[in-house]
């Protein structure tokens, strides 16, 4: 993934709580075996039914518990492919949050009041290293885990980092005893 240090620009707003991944990318689009091209299907039903309008700005401000529901990484893929580089919300569902960080789509948690302020400002600058969101209403701090921040800033994927630890995995497997044996073969 590409490194991400600053996201800056206009803000799109989706002022709804508990937006689930079935809305972000409906199930009929999960049949693709490719990793790209999901952006045109983002919020497919809501946009086509005229329920919401969304501009492909760099930043999306959303409601609490954003991304609840399924583990489909197609949801962050669609948001990223649509044009968003960062999502600001009061809270995210766990799996969705992790999925975003794996692909370099920045999830930033601000409290409801600050989310509203960013939405009203219409423009913002997010600095990953400083862990701040700056807009006309002020400078707001958010938190990001240090290892996640390191990967985002450097555009690194986890697998390469983990494989550097290969010896530790070998040691763990060899030292574990019976429950480290085969599970799914010969059944």
């Amino acid at each position: 993934m590409r490194p991400i240090d600053v996201v800056e620009g206009k803000v799109s707003v989706l002022d709804r709580a508990d937006v689930d991944t079935d809305q972000i990318i409906p199930k009929q689009f999960l049949k693709r075996v490719e990793r790209t091209g999901f952006g045109e299907f983002l919020f497919y039903d809501w946009i086509r039914d005229g329920e919401i309008e969304l501009e492909p700005n760099p930043i999306l401000v959303a409601g609490r518990n954003f991304g609840c529901g399924s583990s489909r990484e197609h949801a962050p893929w669609a948001l990223e492919d649509f044009g968003f580089q960062a999502i600001i919300a009061p809270s995210f569902a766990d799996i969705f949050y992790a999925n975003c960080t794996k692909i370099g789509l920045l999830p930033a948690i601000l409290d409801e009041e600050h989310c509203r302020a960013v939405a009203e400002a219409g423009e913002a600058r997010i600095d990953v290293d400083d862990e701040t969101v700056t807009c006309a209403a002020g400078v707001f701090e958010f938190a990001v885990e240090s290892d996640v921040k390191y990967r985002l800033l450097n555009g690194l994927d986890d697998i390469g980092i983990t494989l550097e630890n290969g010896a530790a995995i070998d040691t763990f497997e060899q030292g574990g005893g019976a429950d480290r044996g085969p599970v799914t073969t010969a059944i």
């Binding site: 399924s70 583990s71 962050p76 766990d94 799996i95 992790a98 999925n99 983990t162 995995i169 497997e173």
Partner: peptide, 23 residues
């Protein structure tokens, strides 16, 4: 037991491990 995204599926296939924040 818990659900993971596709990047994590690839990670587990390649390493049999997962980078996880302790819940």
């Amino acid at each position: 037991a818990f659900g993971i995204g596709t990047s994590e599926v690839e990670h587990v296939m390649a390493t049999q491990c997962l980078v996880q924040k302790r819940p």
